[in-house]
Every structure is written in C-alpha cells, then in structure tokens.
C-alpha cells in the first residue's frame, strides 16, 4: 500500500475543559475513503476538528505528507490542503450559494482571482443543483442542498484531504446516495482522500475503504468494512441482525 498522506499519533485534545481525545493514532492514505464510526460522544467530531486545527492538540503529532501541522491554526491548515466540512453543515443563512463557494477558495483569491472564479465550476459539476441555486441564500436551502453546498465550499480549497462530518445527518436516502456517489467520483477523478465521520454505519460501510471504530476518545478497532462485518461485536453493536455488506 502507498505511504500515508495524513499521520496522527498520540493525539490528545480537549473541547472546553474536558479531554475528549485520549491518544489517537490514525493514518489516511492517498485516494482512500476512511470512515470513522462510533457512538455519540466518542470524540469523532473533535478528532476531525483537531486535525483541521479548530481544536488545539494538547499532545501528540499530526503530519501531512511528512510535514508537521500540529498546533497550526485552522486558517493555515486549510491552506496546506485539509478542508473541513463540519457537523450540521454550518451554512451561512445570509450569504448566497455563490458567496459560500467563493469564500471557500478565499485563501487563493487574492493571487488567483480568475482561477477561483473558474474553480466554482468544480462543485457545480459535482452537484449541478448548486448552479441553479447560485443566487439563493444559504438559509433558504433544504438540508440536502445545504450539505451539497457545505461539501462544495470545502472543495473550493482544492484540498488533498476532505474531512466530512456526518453528511447524512437528517437527509433522505436518495440524497445520501447522491452525495456518496459524488465522493466516489471525486476520489477517482481527483485522487481526493476523504475522512468521513458517520452515524449512518450502513452508508459508511458501503462507501469506505477502511473503517476505524471510536469509543470514549480512543480508536478501539480498525479494518476494512468486510473485516469489521466479520467481527461479531461490531455487527451486533452497530448494524443489527441480518445485515449483509451488500445492504
């Protein structure tokens, strides 16, 4: 297998005054979809936030393609190619769809103005609905449209790694499928690496190349979806009886 693109070792992070991550080891390889599953409060969102620089690391080390990024602020991390699509989408109700996309490419904007304008075509190509919604305000969009916008905004940074926090939350199965297909196309076309946090284990298992299971701030299990499905505890805890990988 190829060398890892992102390497996390011994990561300890707090959210407020509570330590949420107690030493996380994780790696992501180029072009793979890595799913992180686990119960509520396991620290999955905090892990994504800590990688993105939103929550400072108290201990441990994060490297991107060998380069240490531990302790860098969020605005520096995104410049290096890690883009966060946060939980509950965090779409701005008072900004238009186009403004969201342009802001996502902001850090290249001053020097590459026309390039960023042209880049808008990428998320619009992946989610054509964003083109129809161009002038609409973020607050007027449906949940699925907001999720597409949040992902599109994240892609505008031209990331090497997309951190995706619960994209399926509150969405119908058709839209989840559209988003999953889009991720798969991106991975094939652009070699994008995706780290996906999901409560919807079924969707995560169907999409991911590898899966890590988090519980109470630690990674307790990792493997391919097939390996995890063979694991009796996982199947019982997350999938219920009678589930098969074909779903």
């Amino acid at each position: 297998m190829t060398a890892s693109l992102l390497q996390v070792s011994g990561l300890v992070a707090r959210r407020g005054s509570v330590e949420v991550l107690h030493g996380i080891d994780l790696e992501a390889r180029p072009g793979e979809i890595l799913a992180i599953i686990g119960p509520n409060g396991a620290g999955k969102s905090t892990l994504l936030g800590a990688i993105a620089g939103v929550y400072p690391a108290r201990a441990g080390r994060i490297t991107l393609a060998g380069r240490p990024i531990t302790g860098l602020p969020a605005e520096a991390v995104v410049r290096l190619g890690i883009s966060l699509v946060p939980e509950r989408r965090q779409v701005w109700s008072g900004l238009t769809v186009r403004e969201h996309l342009l802001l996502g490419g902001y850090h290249r904007y001053w020097r590459h103005r026309s390039e960023v304008r042209a880049d808008v075509a990428l998320p619009q190509g992946i989610f054509p609905r964003l083109l129809d919604l161009d002038r609409r305000l973020g607050g007027s969009l449906s949940g699925g449209e907001q999720q597409m916008l949040a992902i599109g905004r994240g892609l505008m940074a031209r990331p090497r790694i997309l951190l995706l926090d619960e994209p399926s939350l509150g969405l119908g199965p058709l839209i989840v499928r559209e988003i999953v297909h889009a991720l798969d196309r991106l991975r094939r076309a652009e070699g994008l690496t995706v780290i996906l946090v999901e409560q919807n284990v079924k969707a995560a298992m169907a999409t991911a190349d590898r899966v890590a299971v988090m519980e109470r701030g630690r990674i307790v299990l990792r493997g391919t979806p097939a390996e995890l499905l063979a694991h009796p505890g996982i199947k019982a805890a997350y999938l219920g009886k009678g589930y098969e990988i074909a779903g």
């Binding site: 605005e75 410049r79 946060p86 965090q90 701005w92 403004e99 802001l103 902001y106």
Partner: peptide, 17 residues
C-alpha cells in the same frame, strides 16, 4: 462577505482559511 461570514460564524470562517 468575509466580514458577514465572520460575524455569523467565526470558527467556520477560519476553517475556510
């Protein structure tokens, strides 16, 4: 747009660079 984004959600604005 940056100012409005920052007023409405500072962390998200930072996460966009």
């Amino acid at each position: 747009a940056m100012v409005r984004a920052g007023v409405a959600n500072r962390e998200m604005a930072q996460a966009l660079g």
